[in-house]
Computed example of a mutant assay.
Amino acid sequence: MAILYTTSATATGGGRSGRSRTEDGVLDVQLTVPKELGGDGARGTNPEQLFATGYSACFLGALRFVAGQKKVKIPDDTTVSAKVGIGPRDDGTGFGIEVALTVDIPGLDRDLAESLVAAAHIVCPYSHAMRTATEVPVTLA
Rank of each mutant, 00 (worst) to 15 (best):
G54D: 02
G94E: 02
P137K: 06
C124L: 03
A52R: 13
G39Q: 05
R131I: 08
A120K: 00
S8A: 12
A133T: 09
F65A: 12
D109I: 07
K73T: 15
G18T: 03
V99I: 12
V72N: 02
V99Q: 11
E48D: 03
V84R: 07
A119F: 07
M130S: 13
E23D: 07
D76H: 04
A2T: 12
H128I: 15
V33S: 10
D91C: 02
A120H: 02
V33Y: 06
G87W: 02
V103C: 01
A9L: 08
G94F: 04
S20V: 10
L37H: 06
V99H: 07
F59E: 00
A141L: 14
G44T: 03
Q30G: 13
Y5W: 03
I105F: 01
P106H: 15
L116I: 04
T93L: 04
R64Y: 11
G38T: 14
E36F: 12
G96A: 09
T7H: 00
G94R: 09
V26I: 13
R131M: 07
C58D: 09
T53H: 13
C58S: 00
V72H: 00
V66W: 06
G87R: 03
A141V: 15
A120L: 03
R21I: 08
S115V: 08
A129Q: 04
V136Q: 13
A11P: 04
G107A: 08
H128E: 12
S81M: 15
G38K: 11
T53E: 06
E98V: 15
T12R: 05
P106E: 03
A11T: 13
H128V: 11
T12F: 07
I3H: 01
I86M: 07
T7R: 07
G96W: 15
P75K: 11
A118M: 13
Y126G: 01
E36T: 07
V138M: 15
V99D: 10
V72K: 05
F59I: 05
E23L: 14
D77A: 05
G18E: 03
T22N: 08
K35P: 06
I122E: 13
L101V: 04
P34M: 02
K83L: 10
